[in-house]
């Protein structure tokens, strides 16, 4: 009987360890500055962005008219969105020790400026920034993108 329970609890713990929903999701960046209406959309929830709010992988960031937001990412990338802009951070991995590096984002509309950081420096091929018309490959570092 004891053995049965210990096996059961072992299975239970394995289940917990393997469940990705229970794993802690690390933030990949945060909001540095906000003006006006800025929505951070994570899955089904959307909240008004405020300074120091954390950004998670998969987040969609959307600004209204007369609005803007500046973000600082874990790898030192900085970016800003002008009014009526929208970007989805599809993938962001920054773990240089394990060589897990990637930054994939989709710009949907609006105006953006970037200074790319360590991911672009260490693994330029792993940076992919998309617009509706083209894909940007980045070999350094400061630039503006406008979609209209």
């Amino acid at each position: 009987m004891m053995k049965f329970f210990s096996v059961l609890s072992l299975i239970f713990f394995m289940f917990i360890a393997a469940n990705p929903c229970l794993a802690k999701i690390e933030s990949i960046g945060f909001i540095d500055n906000v003006q006006g209406e800025v929505l951070i959309i994570s899955g089904e929830t959307s909240v008004q962005g405020v300074p120091n709010m954390k950004i998670l992988p998969g987040d969609l960031i959307r600004t209204g008219s007369n609005s803007s937001v500046g973000l600082i990412m874990e790898d030192d990338t900085v970016l800003s969105l002008g009014p009526k802009s929208e970007i989805e951070i599809q993938e962001f991995l920054f773990d240089p020790a394990e060589r897990n590096l990637s930054f994939v984002a989709k710009m949907i509309r609006g105006t953006f400026s970037f200074i790319t950081g360590q991911i672009a420096k260490l693994a330029p091929r792993k940076v992919k920034l998309e617009t509706p018309d083209a894909t940007l490959a980045v070999r350094g570092t400061k630039f503006v993108v406008e979609i209209d």
Binding site: I115, P132, D133, V138, K142, F143, V145, E146, I147
Partner: peptide, 16 residues
């Protein structure tokens, strides 16, 4: 749609 991309000098003056 139309996408415009402009490259600017880095903060240290280099151009990527």
């Amino acid at each position: 749609a139309k996408t415009t991309v402009v490259l600017l000098p880095d903060p240290d003056g280099k151009v990527g």
